[in-house]
């Protein structure tokens, strides 16, 4: 299951760079979209989408037969949006609340995906382990493309396209996303209709989730969506800065993750998430805005009482 550990040979630098880049581009797209999920208190919807894209991916894969076709993105996008619609449908048309509706929709769709893989597993090369845990390591098995004298595996190109284009879309829609996350009523009055913005964000989430799927697998995708934004939120007070720091988190956890995977001989996806979790813990303790240590220090300073320190003045 794990090539890095199993082969036990010296890994060429080129491969390491590929793994690192694959993780980075994946995490980058997720970090930008995921920051808005965190800000909108929709992290769990992100989790739901990351699982519900599975049947779309499997169906598309069964039709086209490879894992790096744009059809997979489209299939994933459609089933992700379908999941959001299902959630809204259940929750608006009945007395079931949103949390339960999320639980129902994504597990059902995920199960459908697992069932589809199971039915076709003998005939096609889609490994359930790979879907659930992700296998960056398989990058080396893919056909190569050459640019400027440098060699890349094909999936790396699609990781890069997804990561960069998701970042660009977030930058272009920045003001709409900001206003509608902060004050939906103002957004509506500007003609940024909340339902439309919501669908666009869900579509974007599905889009970045697909490549994350291949890198870290279905279970850990949510970490790439939530950790960067959550970590950055503890370190900055303005959204543009938070988006930038989320990107930095994506970079550091990818580099750290690949290093960790290599030195411990573990699955790269898990290592990236672990590195990201470590960064979050650091921010939680020492974050300049809301870190535990900073708050303790402020309280102590306030407690000394010579100079009353108040949050307001």
């Amino acid at each position: 299951m794990d090539l890095l550990a199993a082969t036990d040979i010296i890994i060429p630098t080129k491969l390491l760079v590929w793994f690192g880049l694959a993780c980075f581009f994946t995490a980058l797209g997720c970090s930008q979209v995921g920051t808005f999920l965190v800000m909108r208190k929709m992290s769990l919807v992100g989790d739901a989408i990351s699982h519900s894209v599975l049947p779309g991916i499997v169906l598309a894969f069964l039709v086209v037969g490879t894992l790096d076709s744009p059809w997979l993105l489209i299939g994933a996008g459609l089933s992700g949006v379908l999941a959001t619609l299902l959630i809204e449908l259940i929750h608006y048309r009945s007395r079931i609340k949103q949390d339960a509706a999320i639980g129902i929709s994504f597990t059902s769709l995920f199960a459908l995906g697992v069932l589809l893989i199971g039915l076709k597993a003998g005939k096609v090369d889609l490994d359930p382990d790979c879907v659930i845990f992700g296998q960056v390591e398989y990058l080396q098995g893919y056909p190569r493309v050459e640019w400027w004298g440098l060699e890349f595996p094909r999936p790396l190109v699609s990781f890069a396209v997804v990561g960069v284009s998701a970042t660009v879309v977030v930058a272009v829609l920045y003001r709409i996303l900001l206003v509608s996350s902060f004050d939906p009523s103002l957004a509506a009055s500007y003609g940024y209709f909340p339902a439309v913005v919501q669908l666009v964000l869900m579509g974007l989430t599905s889009f970045v989730v697909v490549s994350a799927f291949q890198a870290v697998g279905a279970i850990l995708v949510i970490a790439l969506l939530i950790l960067p934004g959550a970590t950055a939120y503890l370190c900055a007070n303005r959204l543009p800065m938070i988006l930038l720091l989320a990107g930095v988190h994506a970079l550091l956890s990818s580099v750290g993750g690949v290093w960790l995977a290599l030195s411990l001989g573990i699955n790269t996806g898990a290592a990236v998430v672990l590195a990201g979790g470590g960064l979050f813990t650091l921010a939680w303790l020492f974050g300049p805005v809301d870190g535990v240590v900073v708050r303790l220090w402020m309280r102590r300073r306030a407690g000394e009482g010579r100079e009353p320190v108040s949050a307001c003045e």
Binding site: M39, F182, D183, Y233, R238
Partner: peptide
């Protein structure tokens, strides 16, 4: 109806 912990400054809100 506002999330007061949202990462925006006074200027950001006025700019909106």
């Amino acid at each position: 109806s506002i999330d007061w912990e949202f990462p925006v400054t006074v200027m950001d809100v006025a700019l909106m």
